[in-house]
Write a protein that binds this DNA or RNA. Structure first.
Lengths: 234, 234
DNA sequence: ATAACCACTCGCACACTGTGCGAGTGTGTC
DNA sequence: GACACACTCGCACAGTGTGCGAGTGGTTAT
């Protein structure tokens, strides 16, 4: 017989209290945020969920698959504005910053994104919306995809390096500023081998790393967008 | 700060036939090239060198340190031209292509570069030479570093994504073209969710992936350099 | 010649990993 | 009351990185 809303909502609910893929993914993200990639093991994850280790394998094929899911989940946090809201360029700018923010919220991503291509639904839809942005900008043919790739590659490359630094500092129990100070100090001892870097080293000592990263990112993203705009004018 | 592998002095006199750090690094690179990151274990590496597993630990503090060494070794393959050879822009272009080529020669790099900051001597000297390039271009102050970062981030981001695809295809035993074909096929089945991508999918089916990656990279790198040049004009 | 020292090797053991297998358990359907 | 199905999980296996401490061969000091 046809189910009513009432019985249907009941029937749709899990028959008994049960693990779910969604739940596992969320718990995995939480662990990763707290302990990083090295801190994620199937046994610990299962324990956190009050389940037996191998129970996870009914919901997820392998640990690698789980990581794929987890990556796609983060892609879902990224905002890609509609091109006719405020023009392609500010859309792309916002997209870049949103992507960076998402990665910095989950810095372990840097350690895993490039170990597999991202083909999940959220990655797809991000790609689709990006393409809409650059088509609206006036690119045609394969240049649409190339433009999107340019921005994506720059942002991911830049923020991944930043995340690596943050992760390293955290692992050492240092603040990023302290860690940077130590590295600069150490660099000074070998500066004779790299005279061109002397000024850079001086320039950075004692600076606030967070704002330097912001500045560097803003510079780079603007550079890419400027380059794209130049292409459009030709 | 806890001393890193780079500062630990190694001044040694090979008295009898002995393992060397250099040798271990080379063997590790060979294994990585053949079997990828998953195929590198200390035991297997030692066996390849005809040594006991734990012997390696006299020359190298941990596996992570070994990977740091191995990464720096690859940075040593990268060519950064002198700015007064042919001007900054073609120098930067050449640098970008050289960096990409090095990563493609060792695609496992993508899986490891962003799991730690790179501070080895070759990375340093690469950074120094890059800085020389962009100073010669006319950048000043922190913009010199930002310009270098922009190029570096773009190139590494772009080539890492490409390497991830190549690694995945290889793992599946497919050619990159076949793998791409399968992905496109699969994408077509969910195209309804991402209508903006329809054209892109069509555009790529049956194409030669290698030349598409080349084209995309050339587009992106040129875009970044164009953006830098625009900044210089202002 | 002897002893002390050092650079280096390596077997054993520990704690921990991902995951295949197959048995078990609770729920819904006939 | 029987069957099917969705799901759980203990056990076991074949690995992993690496600390420890004993061993070994060469150089130098007495």
């Amino acid at each position: 017989m046809k189910e009513s809303i009432w019985t249907r909502s009941r029937a749709a609910a899990p028959a008994r209290e049960t693990l779910s893929r969604e739940q596992i993914v969320q718990a995995a993200i939480a662990t990763l945020d707290e302990e990083g990639v090295a801190g994620l093991s199937m046994r610990k994850l299962a324990a956190k969920l009050g389940a037996g280790a191998t129970s996870l394998y009914w919901h997820v094929q392998t640990k690698d698959d789980l990581i794929e899911l987890v990556i796609d989940e983060v892609y879902g946090e990224v905002d890609v504005p509609d091109p006719d809201l405020a023009g392609w360029r500010s859309g792309a700018l916002l997209f870049g910053h949103s992507l960076r923010a998402a990665v910095l919220r989950h810095p372990w991503l840097a350690e895993v994104i490039y170990s597999r291509p991202s083909l999940g639904p959220n990655a797809m839809s991000l790609g689709g919306r990006g393409i809409a942005l650059f088509r609206a900008a006036g690119f045609t043919g394969r240049d649409i995809d190339h433009a999107m790739s340019s921005v994506m590659s720059y942002v991911l490359g830049s923020v991944s390096a930043e995340a690596a630094v943050r992760t390293e500092a955290r692992k050492r129990g240092d603040s990023v500023d302290d860690w940077a100070g130590e590295v600069l100090e150490q660099t000074r001892t070998v500066i004779a081998d790299h005279p061109e870097m002397r000024e850079s080293v001086e320039r950075y000592t004692g600076r606030d790393m967070a704002s330097i990263y912001n500045e560097s990112f803003a510079f780079g993203l603007d550079t890419v967008l400027e380059g794209l705009e130049a292409r459009l004018r030709k």
